[in-house]
Design a protein around this nucleic acid. Sequence first.
DNA 1: ACCCGCATTGAGAAGGTTCTCACCCAACAC
DNA 2: GTGTTGGGTGAGAACCTTCTCAATGCGGGT
Lengths: 353, 353
Amino acid sequence: MTERGAPSLIDVAREAGVSTATAGRALGGYGKVSQRSRDRVADAAARLGYRTNGLARSMITGSTQTLGVLVSDVSNPFFATALRGITDVTQPAGFEVLLSNTGGDVEAERRAMAVMSEKRVDGVIVAPALPSEGAHLARAIDVGVPVVLLDRLASGVPNADSVTIDNEHAVAEAVGHLVELGHRRIGVITEAGGDLAHLRKGNRKRGLLPSAVRLRGYFSALADAGITADETLVGAARYDRESAYDATTGLLDLAEPPTALLCTDNVLASGAYRAAQDRGLRMPRELSLIGFDDEPWTTLVRPGLTVVEQPTYDLGVRAGKQLLDRIDGGPGRARHAQLQAKLVARDSTASPR
Amino acid sequence: MTERGAPSLIDVAREAGVSTATAGRALGGYGKVSQRSRDRVADAAARLGYRTNGLARSMITGSTQTLGVLVSDVSNPFFATALRGITDVTQPAGFEVLLSNTGGDVEAERRAMAVMSEKRVDGVIVAPALPSEGAHLARAIDVGVPVVLLDRLASGVPNADSVTIDNEHAVAEAVGHLVELGHRRIGVITEAGGDLAHLRKGNRKRGLLPSAVRLRGYFSALADAGITADETLVGAARYDRESAYDATTGLLDLAEPPTALLCTDNVLASGAYRAAQDRGLRMPRELSLIGFDDEPWTTLVRPGLTVVEQPTYDLGVRAGKQLLDRIDGGPGRARHAQLQAKLVARDSTASPR
DNA sequence: ACCCGCATTGAGAAGGTTCTCACCCAACAC
DNA sequence: GTGTTGGGTGAGAACCTTCTCAATGCGGGT
């Protein structure tokens, strides 16, 4: 049926009766070719079913027209949406996306980075699994692969561009909203556990997951409002709904439970929402709840969930654009873009009783 | 800073004092190399910061260890989840995924397929945007690129493997559930418009979108239950929530409105749910509603939505496995896997008043 | 008749790896 | 001593394109 071994430029050239140089020029759209030759080559190529060998081309041109994207989980709506933003801006520019799922494992991320590098991608967008570890990213930049950080700043990677959300401001707005409504006991459900004292002291943003930045933003927003933070109101959860459910239940069981709850993430928010529902708590009268990141369900649910809406799609778009710019412009001073989230007040927040 | 032009195998060989052949063997893990040579080469490579050039390797081995994935929208949870299934099974096997968003446009899909082909991917998984058009897929198979169809069967591609959901059975179960509860006027909200008479007559599955297959399943399930279908109960919508909202409102405005509603998709289901809520209809007492495809919100909402749960993640896993098998085993008779969906009864369905 | 400029073309190198094949040398059997 | 194995090695081809550079043909000016 089909001859194994696709026809090469040499075959096309022979069929058209020209040299491979001319055939290449005609098909590749570079250099000068007479109309006559162009036609004959095009004919021959069509006849043989010729497909350019991108590998050979990339080898000589030094460009693969391919970008690497490294995220921990594509099935997470946040990353899926950002990814869509990336492809929407890079595909029209002629770039394809090589996707890698790191599953949140730094070692996997390191390997993936090496593979990207071997495959000679023209650049990489990465949401570092563990922002404290950036050595492998720095190495990539050293060998000439542009890197754009997405959603989180890794430490030890001074030359990487970044596109992130202004989490501190976002949380400040959310806390401000609650304070304005009259809340004083404001709890938080967060994925970021660990040493709270240490977290509250530091002020660097590099090396922290967004949830940690948000948690710190929560503390400083409380301070700004003149409220002394109560660390028992910090509900630490793993990154899943059930865990958030339990953490929420824990806070509501306190002798003096919070009158409002801020979730640093949408997955956690769904768990918290559920916990409040199951307890028969009337939102917003008996509990105010704020989620992070907008999603379809937040408007479907009764009461509708007040959320901090992240410009997730734009995050991807900006990262894609930034990478294209960097590929085009070559190395230089790193650029850091920070997008603003905005509070969308719905019916899950109100003044406490 | 960094010397432009990465070190090549030649450099490593010189540094290690061996031939390029030996250096290649040591680093590539093929052929025989003495321990002594292996060590010296490894040292030299580390010293120079050598990275294998995957392009050159692929050119000679004929394998890129890369798979193409073509979907209409990665940000759609369905595709995002399936994609996760794909990567989870193909990455451990040493394959990377080249992703392309077709946006549901056949022309874009055609172009993407050409690019994949030029980049010499080892195989492709595709959810055809327009199942009636399969010529470009058939062409890929002809030139030796294995193709696995995901979620929908394209016509004119006899040699492609496929992994799909048994939509007919899934819908039959949903309709059966409603009939059993006593419903006779069962409406449907669907993305598949067009010629109903023609659709009801045919019985091929190729060339139809899942929503069309489901709509046909709806008709035959009604027939099986001895209910004569009323085509005014078919609410045709575009593929978005607002349109589903309107279609639902339309059905509920009928002189004899349906007592139960089946949605052929989760996006449509969210619109329908909203419409019922806004009308003040008490579910399930005044209206029973069934969605398609499970998602977090369906359990968050009150009443919880009864759904037909698709094994979306598994769909991806199976497609990935099938493609690996095909790459491994070479061409042969096409294999078609069909996964079963299952009805998950929650609180949005009950007997009509 | 001669030379110049211009448009087009072709031969061959380059890009970096793996594969083929011949060769070397030590070890071992007869 | 000769023949035979076999591990280890290296030279060079092969993969397929783009790039470089020299060469060709031709019209027009002198």
